[in-house]
Design a protein around this nucleic acid. Structure first.
Lengths: 341, 341
DNA sequence: GGGTAAATGAGGAACGTACCTCATGTCTAG
DNA sequence: CTAGACATGAGGTACGTTCCTCATTTACCC
C-alpha cells in the first residue's frame, strides 16, 4: 500500500540493498543483467526515490548564482526583492544563493563576471543578460564544468542554457498590438518607444506588435521606434514633439524599460490619461499609473513566479529530474486597472 | 556557517537534545525558564526545522480530500486534470489524495458527502461548492475534528474555512466591464448571460461589471442578466432573440459556466466574431473560440495554480506553518488570442 | 531534611537514502 | 585448474528529526 522503498526493490529484484543502490546511483560494478532485474523491479513497484530523504543523506547543497543587471531599474529591483522572498521560503530548501550584479550593457563586464565564477563551488547559474558571442562562450564554459544554467527573462537562444524562464516576446508584442488596436478603436497613429532597439526583447516585441497591427488593424499607422537611451530628457522631448506636431497619435507603446521617465513626460505634457498607453512590466510606478488611468494596460510576467521557477528548474537540472512544464511556463499577463490585485 | 540543527540548539542553550525536542514539539514536562532558554537559542542561531527530515522521521502523511462538483463542466474537468497532474509531481510529496464528486446544485447531497468524510483518517479538505447554512455546519464539524479546510474557486466566506484559494469575483466582473467598455468603444447595449444568478460568483461578477460600466462607460446600457439554467435550447433562443430584435447589442458578457452552448448558439445565429464576447474560464472550447476571434477575451484563473496552491496551503495548515501569500494569490488573468500560450 | 514529583539528561531506534568497507561468490583468461 | 578480476552481499554509519525509555538531578513541600 505504502510507497515502495529501496528495501522493497531489493526484495522484489532478489538482490541486496547494496546492489540496488549501485544501480539507482549508476555506480559501476553491476552486470547488465542485474541492472535490468533491478530496473524491472523499480518499474513493477512504481518506485520513486524520495528526493528529500536522498538529499538529507547526501547532505545535498544547491549552490546557485543569479547574475542580474545592476542599476536602478524598477524591474530588476522587483526581481531582487522576489528573489529575497523566495530565498526565505520553502522553495529554497538546501539552496545557497548568491547574486552577482553586472552592468546591463557592458558585454565585457558580463563575460568577466561569468568567468570569475568558481565552477567547483557552484551547481547552477541563472543569468539575465543580453546574448553576445562572448557571453555565449562563457556560458559554454559553465556548462562544460557541469553546471546547470538557465536564462531568466531574457533568452539566450544560441547559448547552451538548459532552459529559458520567461515570456515569448514576440507573443508579448502581438498581445500589445491586439490590445492597442482594440483599445484605440482601430484608427490613428501609434508611437513606439524603447530605451534601446539593440535589445533582442525590444526587437521581438516590435516585430509581434507590427504583425498584429498590420493584419488586424490596417487602418492604423505605426510610427518607427524611438530610442531614448535611458535619457529622461530625450524622452521628454519625444513626448513634447508628439503633443505639438502629431495630433494623429492616439496610442503609445513602450516596449522596454524606462517607464518612469515616460510617465513623467506624459504628465508634464498634459497627455496622461489621454493616449492609449501600453507598457511592460508591473512595478510600483506602472501600478500607480494604471490606477490613475494613465496607463491603459501593462503587459507583464510574474516576477515571483520567475524566480521560483528558476530555482525549481535549476534544482531539477542538478538532480537530472524532469521538469513540470505546466508549472514553469511563464504567462504573458495583461494587467488593467481592475485586475491589479 | 551551515544551517543549525537541533544539536546546535542544545549546545547553545546548554540543555540536552531531549529537552530541545520537548520544547520544539511543545511536549509537556519543561519549565518555563528552560523553554525560554531554548527559544532564545533558536532565535540566536536562526534555527529552522528541516521539514523534510521531520516528515521523514515522523512518517508524515497528508491525507487530503477534494470535494468537487460532478457533471460535465469543462471547468471542473480541467480542474480534475490539473489535480491529477499535480498529484503526480513533487508538490504532492507525502500526500494521499482522494476526490469526492457531488452534484453541483444539491446542497443536501453536498452535506451528505461532507458528513460521510471520516475525520479520523483525514488531515485536510478542499471544497468547491456553493455555500448554504448546512454546508457551513458540515464544515464546522470538519474544523472541530481538527482538519484543515480550504475553499477552492468558490469562496465559503461565512464558513470556518482556513483559506480561500481563488479570485475575487467582484474584481473579475470589474475587469470584464473595463474590457467590454474599451473593446466596444463605449457605446451600445450589452447582454449579460449566466446559467444561474443564484450562484454567488455570478452575483458578484455582475455587481463588479455594473459598477465599472456605470462609472466608466455611462453611454453604454447593460441589459438585465439572462439565466439559461444549463439549457442549450434556452441559450439558443436568447441569442436568436438578440439577433432579431436587438440591433443595438454590441457586446455579450457570459458570467458563468456553459460557454460551449453559448458559442454554438452564436455560430448558429451567424453573430460569432461580430459581437464583443467576454467569457470566463479558459477551457479547450474557449481557447478555440479565442483563436477563431469568436471570443474577444477570456477572464480566467490558472487551474494548475489553483490546485497546487490548495495542496500547499492545506499542508501549511496541517504543519501550522505560515503561508507564502504572494505565491498563493490567484491572479485574475486576461486571455486574448495572442497570449493563449 | 527527607520524600516526592517534576524536570532534565543520556542514549537509542527509526524514517529512506547514500556511501563505505570487507567478505564472499562467480566468471574468465591463460 | 587457478589466479585475478569482477559482481554481489552483508552490515554499518550518517543525514536531521521524532519519539521512546530509563536514569538522574532538581525543586518544592511538609
Amino acid at each position: 500500500m505504502n510507497k515502495p522503498t529501496v528495501h522493497d526493490i531489493a526484495k522484489e529484484a532478489g538482490v541486496s540493498l547494496a546492489t540496488v543502490d549501485r544501480v539507482l546511483n549508476a555506480r559501476p560494478g553491476v552486470r547488465e543483467k542485474t541492472i535490468a532485474k533491478v530496473n524491472a523491479a523499480v518499474e513493477r513497484l512504481g518506485y520513486v526515490r524520495d528526493t528529500y530523504a536522498a538529499n538529507l543523506a547526501r547532505q545535498r547543497q544547491y549552490r546557485f548564482v543569479f547574475v542580474l543587471p545592476e542599476g536602478p531599474s524598477q524591474f530588476t529591483e522587483t526581481l531582487r526583492a522576489a528573489l529575497q522572498e523566495a530565498y526565505a521560503s520553502q522553495i529554497a530548501d538546501r539552496v545557497v544563493l548568491r547574486t552577482v550584479s553586472v552592468p546591463a550593457n557592458d558585454p565585457h563586464a558580463i563575460v568577466r563576471a561569468l568567468r570569475a565564477l568558481d565552477t567547483d563551488r557552484l551547481d547552477g547559474v541563472a543569468i539575465m543578460a543580453p546574448e553576445t558571442p562572448q557571453v555565449r562562450d562563457a556560458i559554454a564554459r559553465l556548462k562544460e564544468a557541469g553546471l546547470a544554467g538557465v536564462a531568466v527573462a531574457t533568452d539566450l537562444p544560441n547559448s547552451k542554457r538548459d532552459y529559458f524562464i520567461g515570456i515569448n516576446n514576440l507573443s508579448a508584442g502581438r498581445t500589445a498590438g491586439l490590445l492597442m488596436g482594440r483599445f484605440a478603436g482601430g484608427q490613428g497613429e501609434v508611437l513606439v518607444v524603447t530605451n534601446s532597439m539593440r535589445s533582442r526583447d525590444s526587437l521581438e516585441r516590435r516585430l509581434g506588435f507590427d504583425e498584429v497591427m498590420k493584419s488586424d488593424f490596417p487602418a492604423m499607422t505605426v510610427l518607427p521606434s524611438i530610442e531614448t537611451y535611458d535619457d529622461p530628457a530625450r524622452m521628454a522631448s519625444v513626448i513634447a514633439d508628439v503633443v505639438e506636431n502629431r495630433p494623429g497619435v492616439v496610442g503609445l507603446y513602450s516596449m522596454g524599460l524606462g517607464n518612469a521617465p515616460l510617465l513623467d513626460a506624459l504628465r508634464e505634457a498634459g497627455r496622461a490619461g489621454d493616449l492609449v498607453v501600453i507598457a511592460h512590466e508591473l512595478t510600483p510606478k506602472t501600478r500607480e499609473a494604471l490606477q490613475r488611468n494613465e496607463l491603459a494596460a501593462v503587459i507583464t510576467q510574474n516576477v515571483g513566479h520567475l524566480v521560483r521557477s528558476a530555482l525549481r528548474v535549476l534544482r531539477a537540472f542538478c538532480d537530472e529530474q524532469s521538469i513540470f512544464e505546466a508549472q514553469e511556463r511563464i504567462r504573458i499577463e495583461i494587467v488593467l486597472r481592475e485586475n491589479l490585485y
